[in-house]
Amino acid sequence: MGYEKRYDGRKFDELRPMSARIGVVPNSSGSAIFQMGKTVAIAAVYAPKLLFPQFLQDDEKGVLRCEYNLMSFSGSGERVRPGPSRRSKEISMVTEKALLPVLNLKEYSNCAVDVYIELIQTDAGTRCAGICAASLALADAGIPMNDLISAVAIGRIENKIALDVTKKEEDYENGMADIAIAYSLRLNKITLLQSDGDLGRDELQDAIKLAKIGCEKIRDVQIKALKAKFEVIKDE
């Protein structure tokens, strides 16, 4: 018996309900909240700041620093140990690399652009929600960028490829593989591709195709969130 029907009744190519808003942290240069089902990420950007220690400074461009953190109450029951862990350090690093290709930090020479991503509630797909939120926060902070980044998690559950998996699906007993993909749709570039579990070549290709469809929908939500704050100007 295979995995025929998803636990929450969605279609296999259907995303969870999303919402996004910018300007949620007034003290920061730019911020955003991005929600995907039960996964909620808040990102705040602080820039430009002088970068110390000085040997890290780059005379030609700014340095992007991301920090990904799960809040201690964010999981379902068990308390997440606060502070950096091996996992969160790795995700901070891949987030940085996922965002860098679209950023132009020439203006911020010798400076740091700090991005803090906090997950206040998690239900799988946290790094993807974090990247979506961070991309919005960077746009809100007025950092020059070529494109927005959208990200989504794909799962292979037995013989089915499913878009935007939940925690329950991620914990599926046998035949589960999950892939996190971040896309720059205008440049048609994949900026993040991580996979966990056994996966065939064809399955991976199918997953990437599905991710592109998902990212297009996520991008629409992101664009709407960015424009929502200034909608009224057009009427003037």
Partner: peptide, 25 residues
Amino acid sequence: ISVKLGLVNVSNRLLKVIPLVGGYS
């Protein structure tokens, strides 16, 4: 291509984007 969130201003052939967000440079 625009690199910032802002209002676009078209004057004849010249286009520019007046940013709506961001710090002071």
